[in-house]
Amino acid sequence: MRPVLPGDISAAARALLPVPPAQRRQLAARLLREAHAADCYRKRFKKAHAMWGNGTLMAAALKRPTGREPRLDDQEYLECQSIVFNALQVRNKWKRTP
């Protein structure tokens, strides 16, 4: 997966908003897997993956329905952002484990 920027977090959180709360963690993990797979595809074939984009979390997220970006004090949006950050932390810990 390509480096994660603030826009990636926003896009991923917006992709989680329409999903029932009980399914959001699973979708966040899936978005990370799709971004990683798309990045591998991009490196190998020198083009973006048709379904998951160019290897950014934003590209993977924006392939799903998203609404406009809510205000930063919107509680549900904050919870979705927290889920995305948590998924990134889990991924980073897994990557560092020998």
Rank of each mutant, 00 (worst) to 15 (best):
T97G: 12
K95N: 10
D8R: 01
V19K: 01
N54T: 06
R14G: 02
R64G: 03
L17H: 05
M1Q: 09
V84I: 15
P6Y: 08
L27N: 02
I9L: 11
R33I: 10
C80I: 03
L72N: 14
D39C: 07
T66I: 09
A29Y: 03
S82P: 07
L31T: 05
V84R: 01
M1S: 11
E69M: 14
R14H: 01
K47N: 04
A59K: 01
L78F: 07
G55A: 00
N54K: 06
Q81Y: 04
G7T: 06
L5D: 10
R64Y: 07
M51Q: 12
A87R: 03
W94M: 13
L57T: 05
R30L: 15
T56S: 15
R42I: 02
M1G: 11
I9P: 02
I83C: 07
K43N: 11
N92F: 12
L88G: 05
H49N: 09
G67P: 03
R25D: 13
P20T: 08
V4A: 06
P65T: 10
D73E: 08
H36S: 13
A38Q: 04
T56D: 06
I9G: 04
A35R: 01
P65G: 11
E69T: 15
M51S: 12
A22P: 08
H49W: 03
A59W: 00
L16Y: 00
L78N: 14
E79G: 10
N54A: 10
S82T: 14
R14D: 01
A29D: 14
P18K: 06
R91T: 06
W52L: 04
A61Q: 02
G53L: 01
M51I: 10
A61S: 06
T56I: 03
M58Q: 13
I9D: 05
R71I: 08
C40M: 13
T56N: 04
E69D: 10
R71Y: 09
A28G: 05
M1I: 09
V84Y: 02
L5Q: 12
F85G: 08
A50F: 08
Q23N: 09
R33C: 12
Q89K: 14
K46A: 14
E79P: 05
E76A: 15
R71M: 10
T66G: 02
A50M: 08
A22C: 11
Q81L: 14
K93S: 14
R71L: 12
L31G: 05
L32I: 15
P21R: 14
T56P: 04
H36I: 08
P98R: 11
K93F: 12
M58E: 13
P21D: 13
V90S: 11
A38Y: 04
S82Q: 15
R96I: 08
R71K: 14
Q75A: 15
P6I: 06
P98F: 08
Q75W: 09
P6R: 07
A60N: 02
R14V: 00
G53R: 00
R68F: 11
A15N: 00
A87I: 02
T66W: 03
A48V: 02
T56R: 07
P20F: 04
L27C: 04
P98Y: 07
W94D: 13
F85Q: 13
M58L: 09
A50Y: 08
A29K: 08
R33H: 13
A12G: 02
A59N: 00
V19I: 12
N54H: 07
A15F: 01
A13S: 00
K63R: 15
T56M: 04
G67Y: 04
L27D: 03
E76Y: 09
Q23Y: 07
D8Y: 02
K93G: 11
